[in-house]
Write a protein that binds this DNA or RNA. Sequence first.
DNA 1: GTCTATAACACGATAGAC
DNA 2: GTCTATCGTGTTATAGAC
Lengths: 214, 214
Amino acid sequence: MNLDTCDDATHERILNAAEKLFAQHGHDGTTLREITKAAGVNLAAVNYHFGSKQALYTEVFQRVIRPINERRLAILADAEQLAGDQPVPLRAIVDSFIRPVFEMARGRPPFLLLMSRNFSAPPAFMHEVMGREFGKVAQRYLQVLQTSLPHLSPAEVFWRMFYVTGSMLFVAAHSQSIERLSQGLCRSDDPDASIRRLIDFAVAGLGAPKTPVA
Amino acid sequence: MNLDTCDDATHERILNAAEKLFAQHGHDGTTLREITKAAGVNLAAVNYHFGSKQALYTEVFQRVIRPINERRLAILADAEQLAGDQPVPLRAIVDSFIRPVFEMARGRPPFLLLMSRNFSAPPAFMHEVMGREFGKVAQRYLQVLQTSLPHLSPAEVFWRMFYVTGSMLFVAAHSQSIERLSQGLCRSDDPDASIRRLIDFAVAGLGAPKTPVA
DNA sequence: GTCTATAACACGATAGAC
DNA sequence: GTCTATCGTGTTATAGAC
């Protein structure tokens, strides 16, 4: 409440264990007993440090989403400055949106599942948090995309960005299982290629000709 | 076990209530008490008719996914026949993949959420079922797509179909909340337009130029 | 096939000693 | 700040009467 006691190992251990377990089994599928056991701390520690299971879950998610969104906006601002008076290239916009997610996941793959869970099927108590975190960056991206895709209506831009988000989250959710699902066809051992492939797809989809009104 | 007693109202009432509640709150977030109460049947009826909560969940999902996959393959076969010796038009392939999902959802929107949940973050005991249901149609679509997208490797085709699936499921998951999320910008009151918009995006993404090898 | 009653257990949260 | 012990509640599943 006052100064953060950043040397509190228990606090961090709980967050790390919870991130992994919440990602793999969801909020309802994970118990505080499992978390505290994995973290090697006492059962009562969660309620002492976080107050409740829901508060812990919220903190776990905010700890991962906030740096990502900050980095997104930072890269986007750079791209905007680089473009000067011109519209920001579509590919640069998409890159700034997608890349931070997968870069944050380096070495901690379960985190991608956590992202996916929270945006695709968040627990009910997270709706408010998700709306806030989602809306913040959405507004910014819509603004930038609109100048790079002037032939599309704002609604059209929103829909398409929604699709891109869905593609990204679905890949994120299955980053660990894609090799099995594709029966060895798809490899997940080249993160750079994975990101580039997804960006290629997203840029093409976003830039598709306007749907003619029926 | 022997002949299906198709006039068993209790069986159906449980399935319908379970579909709605599982879709909204997930497997772990739904209790048998809630389901039986919503269905207006006795608590013990679930175990009598289905054996366990997991068996009920499996049955709920298979009841929705199987007709969809059958319809997909039927439409795809028609398109193939219509195309004769020529490759099936990309748009026809995508249409056959996406349209049955949203048509099945007419009048029962929670069903879309169920789809999304099961493919994006299925409960652990569903992994085998999902792999089976996914693999079945995936193989067929990969084969057809390969002839329509000969410039892409099989792996590339799989990845892109994965992205399309993600877009579709994300829209499905938020079909009820997109108006709120977009602050009124996007409307969900024209299902035909929604399907067409998604197909436009998917076709453009699938048909994107091949990613140059770095 | 439907019901009541309950077994058997797991859950989140907390009180209170250290 | 950490621990043990436990409270109160809710869970799935089932036994057994009707």
